[in-house]
């Protein structure tokens, strides 16, 4: 009874919180509410017996994504930026920016479509909501029970944990492509050639011994936790994604606290680290074709070993990618080479 009540409150809270995220005037507050939303989603997944994705959502969905949002909001509003980009922009643009930034403080947003658009929208959106609501309430008993099939084939999958078996064996092709998405995202972000907005953070955190102490304390713990999650993934909730998320968060923490300088996008060490997971996965997937005749069809004898190797490299790449999406500072053209040599050593 009590647990049913808890589920009902949680289920009701989620759409309301989403509504608040979208209507709060202050953008910072919206992002904080978004992080709370992500944590509640993770909680509801824990309630739904999905600890794997609850872990991933808490780390990636709420944590890293939330930090990305905060970082961007901070970059968009309020702070006077370094004049790094001033040279290649027109005067008019600079003036317009001046006008916008003249009122620093709360980053607010009230721009909406006119009222009649909003009113006209409510009808189809409500209709969609009703249709979808009816659809999910009236789900029939499905004719196919994939859960049963997955558990029947768990023996042959090489691992003992259902989700890992699906991710790295039954539907490993999806996972392969998904790692490709991560790599693609990094390339796409780098192609934008963003200015160095985050340079300030390292300076800001100078003279904060408490933070540095905490990060020093957390570093070994997070490495142990990441390793544990990776190792545990074969038998119980955990695996490359959760481990990569924890280690990626550690990377973000190290850079934001100023203990490690942000890596540069053209550091070849970083590039290799980012690509190695995808490359090893693709390479092993293709190589086993020679033995078994199909892409990603591991030979039965070595399935477990191959999956562990793939997961190990995936963890490295996922962690680096998540950190890179957040903190990589692309080199400015003029100073690129100098800093490059300077920071070569940080990469390890």
């Amino acid at each position: 009874m009590l647990s049913l009540f808890f589920d009902a409150v949680l289920a009701l809270a989620l759409p309301l919180l989403a509504w608040r995220v979208l209507t709060t005037r202050d953008l910072y507050r919206a992002v904080i509410l978004f992080i709370a939303f992500g944590l509640l989603v993770a909680l509801s997944w824990a309630r739904l017996d999905a600890p794997d994705i609850a872990l991933a959502e808490a780390a990636i969905g709420a944590g890293l994504t939330g930090a990305l949002f905060l970082n961007t909001v901070g970059g968009l509003v309020g702070r006077k930026r370094s004049p790094s980009r001033e040279s290649d922009e027109s005067r008019e643009v600079a003036e317009r920016r001046e006008a916008i930034q003249s009122s620093p403080g709360e980053p607010v947003d009230e721009v909406m479509r006119p009222w009649w658009v909003r009113l006209a929208l409510t009808v189809p959106i409500l209709a969609l909501g009703l249709a979808l609501g009816w659809a999910v309430v009236s789900f029939p008993e499905p004719a196919i029970d994939l859960a049963q099939q997955a558990s029947d084939n768990l023996e042959a999958s090489g691992v003992d944990h259902g989700v890992t078996a699906v991710l790295l064996n039954f539907r490993s092709y999806d996972t392969l492509l998904e790692i490709g998405v991560l790599l693609l995202a990094v390339v796409a972000v780098w192609s934008l050639d963003l200015g160095r907005v985050r340079g300030g953070q390292a300076a800001l955190s100078k003279g904060l011994p408490v933070l540095h102490g905490l990060v020093r304390l957390l570093t070994p713990i997070m490495i142990i936790v990441g390793g544990y999650l990776l190792w545990a993934g074969a038998k119980q909730p955990g695996g490359a994604f959760q481990a990569g998320a924890v280690l990626g968060a550690l990377g973000v923490l190290l850079v934001l606290s100023g203990l490690v300088r942000p890596p540069l996008s053209d550091g070849s060490g970083l590039r290799i680290g980012l690509a190695v997971g995808f490359a090893v996965f693709l390479g092993i997937g293709t190589a086993v074709m020679l033995a078994t005749g199909e892409l990603l069809n591991y030979p039965p004898a070595s399935t477990y070993g191959l999956i562990i190797i793939i997961e190990l490299f995936l963890t490295v790449s996922i962690a680096l990618t998540l950190a890179a999406l957040f903190v990589t500072a692309p080199p400015r053209k003029e100073q690129g080479s100098k800093e490059h040599s300077e920071e070569k050593g940080e990469e390890s």
Binding site: F170, Y173, E294, L295, L296, N297
Partner: peptide, 13 residues
């Protein structure tokens, strides 16, 4: 029809 990973349709891709 090609079975990726050697798994049949509803379970595999």
């Amino acid at each position: 029809r090609y079975q990726l990973g050697g798994w049949e349709a509803p379970l595999g891709i």
